[in-house]
Amino acid sequence: MKNKLLVQAKGLWKSYEIRVSLFKKIRFWALKNINLEIKERESVVLLGESGCGKTTLGKLILGIEKPDKGHIEVSTSVQAVFQDPYASLNPRMKIKESLLEPFLIKFRKSEKEGLKKVINLLREVGLSKEVLELYPHALSGGQRQRVALARALITDPGLLVLDEPTSSLDVSVEAQILKVLKRLREKTGASYFLITHSLRVAKALADKILVMYMGNIVEEFSAELLNKTMHHPYTQMLIRAYPDPFAPSPPPFDQIKGEVAGITEIKKGCPFYPRCPIKEDICLTGSPELKPLSRKHSIACFLVSKLNHLN
């Protein structure tokens, strides 16, 4: 069965103006030529460098920001859990009000019914109803994040944009949240666009993984291929930098190097060039395009043939 397309984005470009000196502003591209499809019941996970444009892409899906070029079509209701849970919760509203508000606006139902659903959802994310009477400041970081998740779920959205929803949670709570998300997908057919830095989370929830670097998608693959195939040099670096608590020796602190290129110093060439361990002169000839290796895997790199040897 073919699942319906919920999000279809073609050739998205997004720029910001940044002041580089007192008198000069430059325009830099936070997103470059992004193509994205999210199907019904699909979980798309976005990995990427800090500051590469992940949140910006999330904002385009949510319609909070508009692309400069390209177009994006979203054919379902979308809710979000932001990276910073303060942004999702009004500090002057009790948790109860924060949670009830979107429910009452969307469904014309009674407060009593709303409250029932609120309490159920709180239980699902591992919070008890005692938080209802509290204000956000009286909760710990991870507790706030879970309230934000419950708030996003309360209107039964077709697509959830989750910007690092579990990064402030410990493994046991994280496992719970992932379970809630999976269960919900079974039950309601919801889709996810999940931004994360955690390979564990990506593995646990993703159908498809996108890897982004400086506004470009540099790799796209089916989740089951993670670590089982050749990867883009940046993806490989991510995999290598993962600190495994049960490994016999520490992660390779000295092998992961390199400053992310500054946006003022980007010349032409591959965006990963400054940090790439296998670069050659050809990499300076242009920005490599995302090319399919198979139906389930694409990489943007001039030296794909060399990648084999690294794994």
Partner: peptide, 11 residues
């Protein structure tokens, strides 16, 4: 380091 990608986290 929670807000950082793994390559920055390690740095």
């Amino acid at each position: 380091t929670t807000a950082l990608d793994l390559t920055l986290q390690i740095q």
